[in-house]
Amino acid sequence: MHRELYIGVMSGTSMDGVDTALVAIEDNRIELLAHDDFPMPPELKQRLLAVCTGQPTNLIEIGTLDHQLGLLFADAVDALLEKSGYTADQIRAIGNHGQTVFHQPTGTTPFTMQLGDAHLIATRTGIDTVADFRRKDMALGGQGAPLVPAFHKTLFQSSDSSVVILNIGGIANLSVIRPDEPVFGYDTGPGNMLMDFWCQQHTGKPFDLDGQFAQQGKVDDILLEAMLTEPYFSLSAPKSTGRELFNDAWLGQQLANHTASAEDVQRTLCELTAVSIAREVLKFQSGPNPTLLVCGGGARNPLLMDRISALLSDWHVSTTREQGVDSDYMEAMAFAWLAQRRIHDLPSNLPEVTGASRLASLGVVYPA
């Protein structure tokens, strides 16, 4: 397949900005040419958080947010093009994940909702846009998530030992690559989401830079064990989760009738992320040199990385950056790749990961 350029756009559960990645794809080779982090207006973030956490809303607000996000994502693409020196006519397509405001993959009416009008993105940028990646997989009985393991499969290989790629965004998810076995993956639970919320509430800062706030406290073992009884952690895969479960209300329930300093809660939330991840990763240890490659915002938290490394003492723990793949833009790159798969009508889900009944080419094309 000849060389084509794609742009991936990702706004995750943390809502700390819009990541964009411009990649070149030729056959199975993927090269990151440029990337950018476009800010999300604080007022827009707060309105989105209100919807995500179940506060009363209406169709006017949902439609307004959909429109405003479409414009934001288009602006993010334009900023990336200006920064990189490439032009719209050189880009084959945009892959836009959209902003998830609710994800309910189980029950009598499974659904997922991402906002960000792809028609606006396509017409404003002049570039064909692929969006709505998750619902086809769900229509086939899958969770619609995680979708990134399929991309990880093209980037990383396992020889004689397990390779696990761990993305720590708002939610943490992993991809497991083992010799002679299908790729496997799922959401382990909270990543940065609860830590970000608590840090914002008690320091006014959107996230705990370098884990400094958490390092002022100590782990509250009673609180940690109570949090780890959350039923989601014991569910069998395939499984996926998000802010609709791990939110401020969930944390409030955990803290009810429990006294702890703000610093101790922050430190305990960091330990919750580390322990819930490590317990899952250990299930897939095989071979003499098991490797964990970490990407996402959590890879920049030294306290979190130290705790994961300590809990996985028999594993080689590093970031994907050390393997030549920028750890901050892995997911944006993945949605560029997913767009390429859709443009060429190639399968892009992994039924063994999502639980879908069959392979499918995910996404809907919105022509410019």
Rank of each mutant, 00 (worst) to 15 (best):
Asp66Lys: 08
Phe73Arg: 02
Ala74Lys: 04
Ala76Cys: 11
Ala76Tyr: 10
Ala76Asp: 06
Asp78Val: 07
Asp78Ser: 13
Ala79Lys: 12
Leu80Gln: 09
Leu81Tyr: 14
Lys83Tyr: 10
Thr87Asp: 09
Asp89Ala: 10
Asp89Val: 08
Gln90Gly: 07
Gln90Met: 09
Ile91His: 03
Ile91Pro: 03
Arg92Ala: 15
Ala93Leu: 03
Ile94Ser: 11
His97Gly: 08
Gln99Val: 14
Val101Ile: 15
His103Asp: 04
Gln104His: 11
Gln104Met: 15
Pro105Asp: 10
Thr106Gly: 12
Thr106Met: 12
Gly107Ser: 11
Thr108Met: 11
Met113Asn: 09
Gly116Arg: 01
Asp117Trp: 00
His119Tyr: 10
His119Glu: 13
Leu120His: 08
Ala122Thr: 02
Ala122Gln: 03
Ile127Glu: 05
Asp128Met: 05
Asp128Ala: 14
Asp128Lys: 06
Asp128Asn: 12
Val130Ser: 11
Asp132Lys: 00
Phe133Ala: 08
Arg134His: 02
Lys136Pro: 00
Ala139Arg: 03
Leu140Ala: 04
Gly142Lys: 00
Gly142Leu: 01
Gln143Arg: 10
Gln143Glu: 13
Gly144His: 01
Ala145Asp: 06
Pro146Phe: 08
Pro146Arg: 14
Val148His: 00
Pro149Lys: 05
Ala150Trp: 02
Phe151Pro: 08
Leu155Met: 13
Phe156Glu: 06
Ser159Trp: 10
Asp160Val: 14
Ser162Asp: 10
Leu166Trp: 00
Ala172Leu: 05
Ala172Pro: 10
Leu174Ser: 07
Leu174Asn: 07
Arg178Ile: 05
Arg178Tyr: 02
Pro179Met: 05
Glu181Ser: 10
Val183Asn: 07
Val183Asp: 05
Gly185Trp: 00
Asp187Trp: 00
Asp187Ser: 09
Asp187Asn: 10
Pro190Glu: 04
Pro190Gly: 08
Gly191Trp: 01
Asn192Gly: 08
Met193Ala: 09
Met193Ile: 15
Met193Arg: 06
Met195Ile: 15
Phe197Glu: 12
Cys199Gly: 11
Gln201Asn: 06
His202Thr: 12
Thr203Met: 05
Gly204Lys: 03
Gly204Gln: 03
Lys205Pro: 01
Phe207Lys: 00
Asp208Met: 01
